[in-house]
């Protein structure tokens, strides 16, 4: 009499552990992706940003990036502008945080002043580009809630497609769809939906290279704005990891001497 029940429980138990909800699975993928990229310690890279308008006119920015990994919080990063010439020598220091506004300072060489800047508006454009500050900030797990949508081939590889909803109150997006490759959690593509829930922008990352036999970084990122026809391309070069950067290299007190 009892046997059928016993057997049915046996059958159900493994089913339960598989019956992860789409939300749980999405969160798990985000956590795994985050865990995969941990331990890079620091990196430096050069970024060439090319802004293109509808007519095809181009404008260029050249920025050097130094990033320090911070355990348990967003990363610290320094951006030093080499072009355009009128902002040469400008340095921006950012302590990114998950759900609080970032801490941000700007050194303006023309007036030789360090200004603490109000960074609540992470949805604003970065240097007039199609990248918002929040698109370039470090991607902490708690910045979004997640939902696994499906598996899908992306080029020659297989991707997870997950939906993530910004938890930050002042985000410029209602949701994002992210294509992450199943092998090494490389971000291949992101669709951004604006506050009206319309598809606003698509980001595509390519030319990935592996550093220190583990960490993958894209050589190229292209953001296309579907609403205004503009696009911005980032070309990354000279990635170096574990360069010996210290916490002391990321202090507002010494921003003035950053070159």
């Amino acid at each position: 009499m009892f046997k059928p029940i016993f057997f049915s429980t046996m059958l159900v138990l493994p089913m339960v552990s598989f019956a992860q909800t789409a939300e749980e699975k999405g969160l798990q993928i985000a956590k795994d992706a985050d865990a995969y990229d941990q331990g890079f310690v620091d990196f430096t890279a050069n970024m060439l940003m090319i802004l293109k308008n509808k007519k095809g006119d181009e404008s260029k920015r050249v920025i050097r990036i130094r990033t320090l990994e911070v355990e348990g919080d967003g990363d610290k990063s320094m951006s030093i502008f080499d072009e355009p010439a009128d902002v040469k020598g400008t340095a921006m220091l950012t302590y990114s945080h998950g759900l609080k506004p970032d801490d941000q300072w700007l050194y303006l060489p023309a007036i030789k002043r360090v200004k603490r800047i109000n960074s609540r508006n992470k949805s604003g454009p970065f240097m007039g580009s199609e990248f918002a500050f929040e698109d370039l900030g470090s991607q902490e797990v708690e910045k979004y809630s997640y939902k696994y949508l499906r598996d899908e081939p992306c080029g020659e590889i297989q991707c997870y497609v997950i939906e993530r909803i910004p938890a930050y109150k002042f985000s410029g997006y209602t949701r994002q769809h992210v294509w992450l490759d199943k092998q090494a959690y490389r971000m291949i593509k992101v669709d951004f939906y604006d506050r009206k829930n319309e598809l606003m922008k698509t980001l595509q990352a390519s030319d990935y290279q592996q550093y220190l036999d583990h960490y993958w970084r894209p050589g190229k990122m292209e953001m296309v704005n579907h609403l205004n026809g503009k696009s911005t391309t980032l070309e990354w070069s000279d990635y170096r990891f574990k360069t010996g950067l210290q916490d002391r290299d990321f202090r507002s007190q010494t921003l003035k001497r950053v070159r």
Binding site: N118, N121, S123, G124
Partner: peptide, 12 residues
């Protein structure tokens, strides 16, 4: 006091 993205634009 800063108003961000006034009238649905990028202007602060």
């Amino acid at each position: 006091y800063t108003f961000y993205g006034i009238v649905d634009s990028a202007v602060d």
